[in-house]
Write a protein that binds this DNA or RNA. Structure first.
Lengths: 216, 216
DNA sequence: GTCTATAAATGGATAGAC
DNA sequence: GTCTATCCATTTATAGAC
């Protein structure tokens, strides 16, 4: 059901993959910059260097183009996750504090990117109209981050490095502290991204607090 | 400069305050439900029971109406703040844990309201176009909450109830833990509000973790 | 498959009567 | 001050030529 969103066609003359990609790129920038209503199909076609008719031959309507953009971004904005398994031979030998700090710095480096905040704003604004996309984003982004962190904490708990009987809740707490109020200020456009030095200091402070509460 | 947003006029025939209020109420609902672009002036006038000309006589344009809505909401959605002074005679004699729990429950009760989330989404989406409104919202809402909490913690620190040399940072941590990932899920429309029982349990868990890290 | 030109609908804002 | 009726710009989506 629905229209094709890929460059391949069912049987007719194949559509130009370059134009397909150009349309997606232009739409991505305009959606992120001006929201769903702020981006006009006219402008998207112009920025992509194609005509509106071509645009509509690739995507059935504005909704389909929007969904394709979101799905593409979700697939590309993945955080490099730490090792999920707990094989003693492959386990990271560094102390838990170091591993948590590294994880937190990587997370906040991603969350500091302005386009990530634009993306979050866009999805939140469209969440009522596109609940499926919001769920997809949450599962692929925030949820997978929390799950990976909970896995790390569960491992550490089993090894006795930390007392953490509820790794999921603990991961929730730690991620939220890492984000901090700065995340909201940046989401509201009141502040720019933190510097790597600021990130490292903030992450270390939060991690220390967290470990102090969970030490034996 | 600009147009009048209040029901009082400079000297001519006074405008109907009821219509003014009806316009604001209708605009509030439509802006919160569909965003800035999603709410049409036509529909606002229809829902308010006035004509478009009357609408434009009360508010110069859509932007002015939007600003008036936001300002009204910011003024009304205040959290009852705890006592700022630290006079020993008026100080709350209950243990810090109890006071923090009460504060957290009040905060999460407010943050659980769906319209608060709609409001946050709306402001985040419009933050680039209306940076002044975003700043106003942040100062009157999240910032004042954190400041009040930091004041409580600073008091407790001076009395030796807790070790908290940086009350502002500690308030940041605690507020963010209280909010938790549930706040994001609700902002994305993936989950409804927590029950008072869930709120109480979550707040207590976070407060306990916080105090465990800050105890002597 | 892609383009130019256009149809059909909607939204913001205003003119003029009462 | 308020209403009815309307102008003008913009937007989504399509028809027909190459």
């Amino acid at each position: 059901m629905g229209s094709r969103t890929g460059p391949e066609t069912a049987g007719g003359r194949p559509k130009d993959p370059d134009k397909h990609a150009a349309i997606l790129a232009a739409a991505r920038d305009l959606f992120l910059g001006g929201g769903f209503e702020g981006a006009s199909m006219d402008r998207i076609a112009r920025d992509a260097g194609v005509s509106k008719a071509t645009l509509y031959s690739h995507f059935a309507d504005k909704e389909a183009l929007f969904s394709a953009c979101i799905l593409g971004e979700v697939a590309r904005s993945q955080l490099p996750m730490p090792q999920p398994p707990s094989d003693p031979r492959t386990a990271d030998p560094r102390p838990l504090a170091k591993r948590l700090d590294e994880f937190g710095r990587a997370l906040l480096g991603l969350l500091s990117r302005p386009d990530i905040h634009q993306f979050g704003r866009l999805l939140a604004a469209q969440s009522l109209r596109h609940p499926r996309l919001a769920q997809l984003f949450y599962d692929a982004g925030p949820k997978s981050v929390c799950d990976a962190l909970a896995g790390m904490l569960d491992d550490a708990h089993r090894r006795g490095e930390v007392i953490c009987p509820d790794p999921a809740a603990a991961a929730d707490h730690l991620v939220c502290m890492w984000k901090g109020m700065h995340h909201m200020r940046q989401e509201l456009g009141l502040e720019g991204p933190r510097s790597p030095r600021q990130i490292a200091a903030h992450v270390a402070r939060c991690t220390e607090l967290f470990l102090r509460a969970h030490r034996s």
